[in-house]
Amino acid sequence: MRTRILLAVAAAATLTIAGCGKTPITPADSSAAIAGLGSEHVKVGMAYDIGGRGDKSFNDMAAAGLDRAKEELEIEATEATPEGGDDEGRLGALNKLIDSGHNPVIAVGFQYVNALTKVASEHPETTFAIIDDDSIKADNVVSLVFAEEQGSYLVGAAAALKSRSGVVGYIGGVEIPLLQKFEAGFAAGAKRVNPDVKVRTQYLSAPPDFSGFGDPDKAKKIATGMLADGADVIYAAAGGSGAGALQAVAAEKGATFIGVDSDQYQSADAQLQPVILTSMLKRVDNAVFQEIQAFIKGDRAGGTRRFDLKTDGVGYSTSNQALIKPLTPKLEQLRQQLYDGRIVAPTKP
């Protein structure tokens, strides 16, 4: 099984580097987006993780990519959300999409690995994609993975540049290697600009307990403790739990928050926006769109596609100009060094 080479510039859009949190630029002539993509009627199935569309984070980024594909590539799409947080619930969501004739089927999140392994072997004629896992080695499964450590490096640098106390915090949803990539990059970026910075780290749960992605009350309690311990910038990579951490930060004068996956400044309530320094952008939307586009073009082999700074896969947002603008020159310098390979962000704490 070959490793699939990512199209850095998709035919349907000219992508900008995500270092400044910019969104893809769509050509004025949208007919170019579907030119040459064939006449096959494509029905895409999207299986979200718990929380589904509307989580203001990971699922919503996948939904944005699907929405863009519906508009630009003229596909039909159906969405499903598991009824339970276990393999049986995820298996049900996948089978619902498969049984109704959807192909490709995209699974949002590594927790689909067991269910997807089963259905992929049972339905070799269907192309599947899974986000955040590359352990399934099957000819009909595409892995969409990201360089989260690079984006986290940049927001870690932003945290240290912004901090007055010299103490910053990282809250992870579940203590797994994927979330440790966020932690490692964040700490390294912070120490790059301030070697003396203290990075407080805490996870909400550990396997087999994955409740850390949906426990905002616990995240709020942990964030409150970090703030009391001197932290004045907190980065939460914890799915829906991040909302609790944001509430704690907003209640602490002078503290700021760093979001994850999507530009959380854009989705936050107006009273919370002023404390959001930036967000680590994980461009799941680009990954979903480009995978659907590849399928339409006939590229249906299994393999791995990695999204990093060079492919507009990760970055940081700049919506809150009042806070982020003074830091941007240094962050852009670091972004270029990561892009060029002069800095290699770590993937392990």
Rank of each mutant, 00 (worst) to 15 (best):
Asp217Glu: 14
Val44Phe: 05
Glu83Ile: 08
Ser143Ile: 09
Gln293Pro: 08
Gln337Ser: 11
Ile34Asn: 13
Leu73Arg: 07
Gly212Asn: 00
Asp308Pro: 07
Arg342Lys: 15
Glu79Arg: 09
Asp215Asn: 15
Ala62Ile: 01
Asp55His: 09
Ala251Phe: 02
Ile17Pro: 01
Ser135Glu: 12
Asp229Trp: 07
Ile106Pro: 00
Ile34Phe: 12
Ser317Val: 02
Ile136Arg: 03
Phe110Ile: 05
Glu79Asn: 12
Gly38Leu: 11
Ile17Trp: 14
Ala159Pro: 12
Ala237His: 03
Val174Asp: 04
Asp86Phe: 11
Gln111Thr: 15
Gly214Trp: 09
Ala184Lys: 07
Asp86Lys: 12
Asp132Ala: 02
Ala62Glu: 06
Ala237Glu: 01
Leu334Asp: 02
Pro27Glu: 01
Val197Tyr: 05
Ser57Val: 08
Phe257Glu: 08
Glu183Asp: 09
Ser100Lys: 14
Asp55Cys: 03
Ala248Tyr: 00
Gly65Phe: 05
Ser31Ile: 08
Asn95Cys: 02
Lys22His: 13
Ser152Val: 04
Thr78Asn: 12
Val314Ile: 01
Met1Thr: 14
Arg200Cys: 10
Glu74Ile: 12
Ile50Arg: 02
Gln111Glu: 14
His102Met: 10
Asp232His: 07
Ile296Pro: 00
Ala287Ile: 09
Leu272Phe: 15
Asp133Asn: 14
Gly169Tyr: 00
Leu327Cys: 03
Met46Arg: 06
His102Ile: 03
